[in-house]
């Protein structure tokens, strides 16, 4: 049974500069987002007990093959990609359809893991759409997984409690970043990544036609403004009083 991990390439947040409260996206490299890296690290861990291969699925533009080397260096065995320039800025329902069609091409897929939200817009919608299209059960906010035969146990990290559920496979799960800290890849695994098996499809190969006007248009994307209050403090007692009046601490 194979473990499938859905990965999204996102702009490297460390390289985004802000000018006039707007992000400058030129020359920002594409990378795999942090939660997706955790999802992949969890999958590579699971492979040791559950067997099979870890297969990445991803959809994106012409940079995708380069970006996905990060995932292959991090321990994935194979990548199944959809590369099409029309996918840039596409809304979640289309991406969900594309990923579901891609996952259907993979034989013996058991568990399909997503990060709970992407590092760029964090809508968290694609996972449920894929589960719906494939007709698989879905579990969200997972921080621990164990697989035995064709059944998975998963612990969900909820606001005030943790819940452990049992779920028959195949199933779709979204995981939180705490599930597994990604390892630093070795130089050898980085260099071997380019030789790992890859299948690349286009939208035409998958028989998917994109409906018109399904692109997300960002109306405005402004960085928050931080303003200093300029309060002059002369003693610790005064500082405590200010904190109390601002509601930062309570006695």
């Amino acid at each position: 049974m194979n473990i499938i991990v859905a990965i999204k390439q996102v702009p490297d947040l460390d390289y985004i500069r802000i000018r006039d409260r707007r992000p400058i996206m030129e020359d920002v490299p594409q990378v795999i987002g942090d939660i997706d890296k955790s999802a992949l690290a969890a999958a590579v861990d699971l492979k040791e007990s559950a067997g099979g291969n870890v297969i990445i699925v991803s959809a994106g533009d012409e940079n995708l093959e380069d970006t996905i080397k990060e995932g292959l260096a991090a321990g994935a065995d194979e990548a199944v990609l959809v590369k099409d320039a029309r996918l840039a800025g596409m809304e979640s329902s289309v991406i969900g359809t594309v990923l579901a069609a891609t996952i259907s091409k993979i034989e013996n897929g058991g568990l399909i893991i997503f990060g709970e939200g992407s590092a760029d817009n964090y809508s968290g919608q694609v996972v449920s759409r894929v589960a719906q299209i494939l007709g698989y059960p879905q579990v969200g906010y997972v921080n621990w997984i164990e697989i035995e035969e064709r059944v998975a146990q998963a612990t969900r990290s909820l606001e005030n409690e943790e819940e452990t559920v049992e779920i028959p496979l195949p199933a779709v799960m979204s995981v939180v970043s705490e599930i597994k800290e990604p390892k630093i890849p070795s130089v050898s695994s980085i260099l071997k990544a380019r030789n790992k098996p890859k299948r690349v499809y286009t939208l035409d190969d998958l028989g998917i036609e994109i409906p018109e006007n399904r692109y997300v248009r960002t109306v405005i994307n402004l960085a928050p403004v931080s303003q200093r209050k300029g309060i002059l403090i002369k003693s610790v007692d005064e500082l405590v009083k200010v904190f109390e009046s601002e509601g930062i601490i309570r006695r």
Binding site: P29, D66, T67, K69, E70, A73, I184, P185, S186, V187, I190, L191, A193, R194
Partner: peptide, 12 residues
């Protein structure tokens, strides 16, 4: 991309 990843691995 490989050089970028090696640079990041050393930095991390």
């Amino acid at each position: 991309k490989e050089q970028q990843m090696i640079q990041s691995a050393a930095r991390d």
